[in-house]
């Protein structure tokens, strides 16, 4: 019993540390956001890093996801003569779930890892201490531009995913399922509505925070040299991915309740 209690206790303490640390960091981010000036040049640089440099990866992933889903839906529905429902199903699934989810997971892997390792390396080489020792704030200079860049870039990348994934679905719909491209496009546009789009789009703001804040937190908390930079990077990606996957259910539930009210 005691052998079981020890790791459980240390896990609980680590979780409380993590939650407290994330809470403090989030407070500091919002405090700096409203109290201090924003480094526009750094923000634009980060938007480029997060958005533009992730775009090829996102496009490749999106088109693959769209094509695979179209193929699977087509194969499944063909047995029941429901091939014509593929455009509708695919569009709604991508707009509401798969678009924001896949974009966020890809960004967590690429950008979250990048942020955690970059900040971790800055801690190890005392650059974060230097920022503080020069009378400036690492939250304002390092964390805030990265968080804002994720908040700006992720919804845009998600919009790209939505378009590209549906295009991928259309290609397979036309080539493999022998659906007329005009019919496919018409079905996509007529059956998916603004609330489908907003439901997915709204999630991306939460997902952006789920990626950027843990990545910054783990990066800033690197303590014992370069070995811990790797550990921090892994933790950032794992925690962000879990937050995105678990958080998605709760956010979807809230959005669904709001939609019902409206």
């Amino acid at each position: 019993m005691l052998t079981l209690m020890k790791p459980l206790t240390s896990f609980t303490i680590e979780m409380l540390h993590f939650l407290g640390g994330i809470g403090y960091l989030t407070r500091d981010i919002f405090r700096e956001l409203f109290k201090s000036r924003i480094y526009w040049r750094l923000l634009i640089e980060q938007i480029y890093q997060v958005g533009m440099r992730s775009a090829p990866l996102i496009v490749v992933t999106a088109v693959s996801v769209g094509m695979v889903m179209s193929l699977q839906f087509g194969l499944g529905l063909e047995k029941f003569g429901g091939k014509m429902y593929v455009p509708k199903l695919l569009a709604v699934t991508i707009l509401r779930e798969m678009g924001p989810m896949f974009t966020s997971l890809m960004l967590a892997a690429r950008v979250g890892a990048g942020i955690a390792s970059e900040i971790g390396s800055m801690v190890v080489t005392q650059q974060i201490d230097a920022i503080r020792a020069l009378g400036t704030s690492p939250i304002r200079k390092i964390v805030l531009p990265r968080v804002l860049a994720c908040l700006i870039a992720l919804p845009i990348l998600c919009a790209v995913t939505n378009i590209v994934a549906n295009a991928g679905g259309l290609i397979i719909g036309a080539v493999e399922l022998k659906l007329d491209p005009g019919f496919y496009l018409l079905k996509v546009l007529s059956t998916s509505n603004v609330s489908d789009y907003l439901s997915g789009f709204g999630k991306t703001f939460f997902f952006a925070l789920f990626i950027a804040i843990p990545a910054c937190y783990f990066g800033l908390n690197v303590k014992n040299g370069t070995k811990e930079v790797g550990i921090a990077t892994t933790k950032a990606v794992v925690v962000s991915s879990i937050l995105i996957l678990v958080g998605d259910f709760f956010i979807s539930k809230v959005f669904w309740m709001v939609e019902k009210l409206l």
Binding site: T125, Q126, Q127, D129, A130, R132, A133, L134, G135, S137
Partner: peptide, 22 residues
């Protein structure tokens, strides 16, 4: 940290490795 800004303008710290922003 905010209160320390004025102190840090008066007290400079020369880090062992320079701690330059790479």
């Amino acid at each position: 940290e905010r209160q320390l800004i004025d102190i840090r303008k008066k007290v400079a710290y020369a880090f062992q490795g320079g701690a330059l922003f790479d």
